[in-house]
Structures are given as structure tokens and as C-alpha cells.
Amino acid sequence: MAREKRLKFRRSRGDLIYSVVTYIILGFLFLITLYPLYFVVIASFSDPALVNSGQIVLLPKGLDFRGYERIFELDRVWHGYLMSIYYTLFGTLFNLFLTFTIAYVLTRKDFMARNFFMKFLMLTMFFGGGLIPTFILVQDLGLYDTPLTLIIYGGVSVYNVIVTKSTLENTIPYEMYEAAAIDGCGQIKFFVQFVLPLSKAIIAVMALFYAVGHWNDFMNALIYTNSEELQPLQLVLRNILIEGEMLANENLDPDLALLRQQQAELMKYGLIVVASIPLLVAYPFIQKFFTQGIMIGSVKG
């Protein structure tokens, strides 16, 4: 005990400097990551004049909820919200189906075509047809500008298949299948009755990975759809925030023009918050799952 203490003491100066530096760097990274997010939130309900003149730093000032009031009146934002939920829900289900069936098949060591299937999938990680041939294909299939495109496009990520496969290999012992086979259980039945119920954690992780991908996507919507009523939230946001469509299209009443001008910035901050709310709310709960997902992939892959 005493010796240990002395050792600790002897080393402590270099280590102390090290710890202090560690905390300073980590603290800095913490602040620099958090502050922009925090700023958007407080700026979204502060007086826009104060925001523009740089007087909002730590706390919101001159509370002003008109930005949010305006956002609530915007039908296209809410319609986009609904479309995003729709694409995310069905898209994720489709993803899970494609990912787990193939991942299970790839875990079966006695399956002859296993390596061939694996290579067939992995080749697509390194080479593909690219944007234009895919665009032509989507048109030829008659999927262009249909809601189905955004559900099935990007149906399976090979990286996720590999992660799922390694996880299944570790959670479902091969002996279990053999035992079930002796009892006359077929492979599909085994998959549905044993593999899936035992893989709830990895299903959750994959569902979250895919769902975030669908929720945040705007590019596929931009490329593969044309009608306004098919636009998911992110594309609506992009049109309002980046292309500045709002000011031109939304309001024709000249009396309100000045007010609109003021509120435009306020609304932009508000829209960012509204679009991120589902993730902001869910994030603390799901963060653990995400971390697990990536860990599994990196350790066992």
C-alpha cells in the first residue's frame, strides 16, 4: 500500500500535467461541438435584431416565438414531415428485411454458396455504375417520381450486412441450428423463430442506422422525384433554407413584407430545430445502441 502510494506520488507531476492538458483539450472539444447546436436553439426564439447584432451569446434574449408561429402555418413543412415519416418507416422495414435474411444465410458455414454470395455483395462496395446509369435504371423501371423509389432505393448496405453477419455469428451458436435441425426444424422456420427473437439488440441498431439515413436523405429525393407532394422534410428544408424559396413564394401580402424580412432569419433557425427535434429527443436514448453497433463491426469484422 505504502509503496504504491509513493510510486503514485513520484509519477504524479508528469501525469498531473498530462491530466490537466487532457481535460483542457476535451473541454475545448466539448464546447466547440456543443455551442453551435446550442446557439441555433437559443437563436430560434430570441429577438432577431439582437441575434443579428451579436448580442445573443449565452442566453436567449427578447423572447420571440413568431418564427415558430410562422413555421406552424407552413403546410409544406408539415407535409414534408409526414412524407419523411412514411419513407423512414417503410424504408427501414424494407432495409431490415433485406439485411437480415442475407446476413443469416451468410452465417451458415455449411452453405456452399456462402463465399460466392459474400464476394457478390462486397464487390459493390468498391465499384458501381454511378449516378447516371442508376438514374436511367430507375427511369426504366418506372420508379422515377413515385413514393416507392425513396422507400426501396438504397435497400441494403453491404457494410451493415457484414456487421449483422458477425453479430449473428457470435450470438447464435452453430450447435443450436444443428439441434433444431435434428428436431426437424427447417432453415426459414429456424430463422424466424430463433434467430430473429435472439437478435433484438442488433435489429435495433440496424433499424436506427437505416432510419437515420432515410430521415436525413435529401439527395435521392432531389434526383429521383419531381413532384412537390413527394418531397421529404429535408428537401423542403433545403429548398427553403438553401435555395431561399420561402421569401419568393410563400407570401403575397405586401403589408407583411417587412415583418417577413425580419422573421425570415428567425424562421430559419426555428426550422433547423424543428427538423432536428426527432433526433434531438431520441438521441440520448439511442446513442448507446449506435456505439454498440459500430463496436461490433470493428471488433469482430
Binding site: T101, I102, F120, L121, T124, G129, P133, G155
Partner: peptide, 25 residues
């Protein structure tokens, strides 16, 4: 293992259509 082929089929078809046909394209 026909059941395993059956399980793998949807994904393989999907990948064939959306990844390999564009390469042909």
C-alpha cells in the same frame, strides 16, 4: 439448402438490379 437460397434471393436480386445492372449500363 433450398430454403437458404430462398432467403438469400430477395437481397441478391435487389443487389443485382440496383448495383450490377448500372455497371452493365
Amino acid at each position: 439448402h433450398y430454403e437458404l437460397y430462398l432467403l438469400a434471393l430477395p437481397t441478391l436480386i435487389y443487389v443485382f438490379i440496383f448495383c450490377y445492372i448500372p455497371i452493365y449500363g
